[in-house]
């Protein structure tokens, strides 16, 4: 049974790698439809990745070893973080690792190396991008942690599996704290995944780019790994929000194989719907000035704080 469980845990982690570009392709396709364009085919992100892997990798002669090792570290930490989040089933051997604080820590580690890589060559854009990324991260992380603590207080555990289990066990309950935590995590996800009100993933305009500015010096397989990590990060936040707040459909045990197709269908539907909501938000909103981003993330922090307070005030039995 344990070998089966381990294989399934590894398969589940591989699904993140394989399917993340597909999700990005779906997001781009939806966005194109909403802008009355036909858009690139659904599999375009895969083709881009293949192109980058085939192309020659050039490294600036001023680069230190950090520059070449950063893509691997960023990719691995993002993937490791993603693999802790239950995608299809709850009971895998990695559940012991599935701690929300570990998740935030792993993402922070990846971001640290991303910023280092941005500053490594010494170009102006890289340093600017790194400083902006750190500004956003410093403001987004407290909001995310408080939102996470709100969930942890309801389930009495910071373990993701137990939180989802608790949510499944209590059935459909309206919780104001979950509502606030959901909105806070949604705002944080938009900021951290570099989506439109905070950062535009498709632009290479000097004044506005954040994530792209750090990748400006990368080429070939390094760029492919960095972009792939960004895709995985988007999927990570999507699955996190979908499975914590709407866990219905996820398999609790691997003994019954018959529930697996339902789990797959449920997660695909949830991700497609979340992507649709995100794309509508991106189409309606305009990218904000960098100096307004702290206000945006303060709103996320306030929402998370209200979630925590409303949990204490409204939901704790005395």
């Amino acid at each position: 049974m344990t070998t089966l469980n381990w294989t399934f845990a590894i398969i589940q982690a591989m699904i993140y790698i394989v399917c993340a570009p597909l999700l990005v392709g779906w997001v781009r396709k939806l966005r194109a439809y909403l802008q009355n364009r036909r858009g690139a085919p659904l599999l375009q992100p895969y083709r881009d990745l293949r192109k980058w892997f085939i192309k020659e990798t050039r490294v600036a002669h001023t680069a230190s070893p950090i520059f070449t090792i950063a893509p691997v570290i960023v990719f691995m930490t993002t993937w490791l973080a993603a693999s802790t989040i239950p995608l299809l089933t709850l009971n895998t051997p990695t559940t012991a690792l599935a701690d929300l604080i570990v998740l935030v820590g792993l993402l922070a580690l990846g971001r640290f190396f991303l910023a280092l890589a941005g500053m490594d060559i010494g170009t102006a854009f890289g340093g600017m991008g790194a400083s902006r990324e750190m500004l956003i991260a410093a403001l987004a992380e407290p909001a995310m942690l408080i939102a996470v603590f709100t969930l942890a207080m309801s389930a009495h555990s910071t373990n993701l599996t137990q939180i989802i289990d608790y949510q499944l066990g209590s059935g459909f309950v309206l919780r104001p704290s979950y509502l606030f935590a959901l909105s806070a995590l949604g705002l944080v996800a938009m900021a951290e995944a570099g989506r439109i009100p905070v950062d535009n993933p498709t632009t290479h305009l000097e004044l506005t780019m954040v994530h792209e500015a750090m990748l400006l010096e990368y080429s070939g397989r390094h760029l492919a790994l960095m972009e792939w990590a960004a895709h995985i990060k988007l999927m990570l936040y999507g699955v996190l929000i979908a499975n914590i707040f709407f866990p219905w459909g996820i398999t609790t045990t691997l003994e019954q194989w018959s529930t697996l197709p339902i789990a797959i269908l449920a997660v695909v539907l949830k991700l497609m719907l979340l992507a649709l909501i995100m794309v509508i938000a991106e189409t309606v909103l305009a990218k904000m000035r960098l100096f307004r981003v702290p206000g945006f993330l303060n709103l996320a922090l306030l929402l998370a704080l209200l979630g925590l307070l409303s949990h204490v005030m409204l939901e704790v039995g005395v």
């Binding site: 309206l174 209200l306 409204l314």
Partner: peptide
């Protein structure tokens, strides 16, 4: 539950 959510 609705009352609580609306109040929040």
């Amino acid at each position: 539950q609705w009352v609580v959510v609306l109040a929040a």
